[in-house]
Amino acid sequence: MDCKKASILMMMFLDNTISESDKLRLQNHLEECNYCKQEFSLLLESINIIESIEEIEPPSKIKDTVMSRIDTNKYKEKSKTRLWILWITVIFSMTTGALAYLVFNNAVIVKEILIPLLIKFVNFVTLTLPVLLVKIEENFFVLMGVGMVIISMLLSSIIILVALQYYVTEKLEIKFRGGFKF
């Protein structure tokens, strides 16, 4: 075995990955080669010194300093707030979207079928609501305008809310365990 191969085996020895047969080959080589023997002894000594460096105790204040500098409620607040905002956004978007769709595309159905039906139903129950509904029917187009204004205000506030959320919480980082990243 040449010295180059012996050098590789020395490293394997230090890694504790050397086989018994290689260990024997290395041993035989070291008995014959003084240069490698000295090299191996120096290597072992260097590594022994590094491995014998004793660990020092960290200052006791580390834990207290870290705990005082972190926000222990960071994830509690964020996870709850984020989910609430998410749900509110979803519900509002769906409701206003559905309403807007109904108002814009089915105004005739709403006016001529749904509201009269509702009036007939409520007539049985109470006497006050029909009066109100009749008034709604009478002023349907005015109310529809007001409704659209409200809907557009709601939509724009939702958009602002989502945008704010996005920037404040670093690109809306909602990460569920298991790798799903919102």
């Binding site: 660990e55 020092i56 105790e57 960290p58 200052p59 580390i62 834990k63 870290v66 705990m67 972190i70 926000d71 222990t72 409620n73 960071k74 994830y75 509690k76 607040e77 996870s79 709850k80 365990r177």
Partner: peptide, 20 residues
């Protein structure tokens, strides 16, 4: 991550010596 941030001190205790 569920909001019990105070438990983080266990991890600090576990690894402070190594990191230090």
């Amino acid at each position: 991550l569920e909001g019990n941030g105070h438990l983080y001190e266990i991890l600090v205790t576990r690894y402070q010596k190594k990191i230090y």
